[in-house]
Design a protein around this nucleic acid. Structure first.
Lengths: 218, 218
DNA sequence: ACCTGAACACCGTTCAAGT
DNA sequence: ACCTGAACACCGTTCAAGT
């Protein structure tokens, strides 16, 4: 439980982002970061207790790179601005995405982002007791979508969809069969991200409406 | 591009699940799986070209462990059954979760699960052109929630929330300040998972309603 | 047809020592 | 106060060889 040094922390975090940006997730090692800083791997352990702790700090810095929202935006625009900002920052450092979805928001930068979402949902009129849940839902969906998209879960598989489906008997996949040609069209992930955001905002609005007018729930 | 052997694939996949189940993600190595099978690490490469390919097969098998839905369920119950099933299977093999969110659904088991969701959304009356997007949204949220919860993103951080927030000036976090005590209450992740599912189903119902009655969108 | 052994180029982290 | 060097116990994967 030694006390950690502070002086060169920002320099090390920058080096980690640089490694992630131009050599990917698998290359983001303590050894690579150390080399970029110009120091022995063991020197990093004076600043971060473990690699996990370094990654946590990296996520915080990444979130701080999201441009601040211009003043006077409505709550939907605030959430959109944040989500698009996250998406473009993540595009620059895709290696850090899995960390975003598995580590808690403990750094100041991360907490500030959470606060922006809280404010937007409060503005939308979401009941106080549901704001935290909706923030988690919103962030899970946003990060999960970006991660799925960038890691190839959503497409660009090794087999094209029609050939892949042909491996299974058509009657065992009635859903795929009914949708047919709809499944073979290429998808614009930008549009899909936007549509998902719109749906999440509609959901927040519906929860707000159900609160002021309980009969409206059904 | 050698041809792969088939004979012992199931045995190897089982061994991988067993390692994941009782020694966790970090221990899920080719060497550990090989040892469990009783074979040299290099023998595995006769059955899977890379570790990634093995993990893909493991995910397929994991999805096949979700119990099939009893007949006669409504579409909401089908989606709930599937989501709860995924959650409990994932609880048995938490090591495999990150793979679920980053690899495409290419195995027969994975495609069958997607088909169940397609069928449910079609039953709900979601327009054909939106079914695939909603399936991706649903799976992203479900897997993302389970992963966030099990990896500790949602809580159990190193600092308790009030102490953590105290590190920042209260006026820089107006959202947290407004929510106050709401943020200090413990959360039941089971309830939250259920609430998120309900919201997703409501969303599907709303999209279905907007389709049959366009004026109802606003 | 199936498997092994040795090797290559890596990991995160501990510990004791150096300036 | 800050950093280094050597070591430990691991990785995924290639290649040539063995039965």
């Amino acid at each position: 439980m030694r006390k950690l040094k502070e002086s060169r922390r920002p320099e090390i975090i920058d080096a980690a982002l640089a490694v992630a940006a131009d050599r990917g997730l698998d290359a983001l090692s303590m050894r690579a970061v150390a080399q970029r800083v110009g120091v022995t791997p063991m020197a990093l352990y004076g600043y971060f207790r473990t690699k996990d702790e370094l990654l946590e700090a990296v996520v915080g810095r990444l979130l701080e790179e999201i441009p601040p929202a211009p003043p006077g935006l409505g709550w939907r625009e605030m959430l959109q601005h944040l989500a698009y900002g996250l998406r473009s920052v993540a595009g620059r450092y895709p290696a850090v995405l899995p960390v975003l979805l598995t580590r808690p928001a403990v750094s100041p930068g991360a907490i500030r982002v959470v606060d922006v979402v809280y404010r937007a949902l409060l503005d939308a009129g979401v009941p106080h007791g549901q704001v935290a849940r909706l923030e988690r839902m919103f962030s899970t969906l946003a990060i999960g979508h970006i991660l799925s998209e960038m890691s190839g879960r959503f497409g660009a598989g090794t087999l094209d969809p029609p050939a892949r489906r042909a491996q299974l008997s058509p009657e065992s996949l009635p859903g795929h069969h009914t949708l047919g040609a709809h499944l073979d069209q290429p998808v614009d992930w930008d549009d899909e991200f936007t549509a998902n955001l719109r749906d999440m905002c509609d959901l927040a609005a519906a929860l707000a409406a159900a609160d002021t007018n309980p009969q409206a729930t059904h």
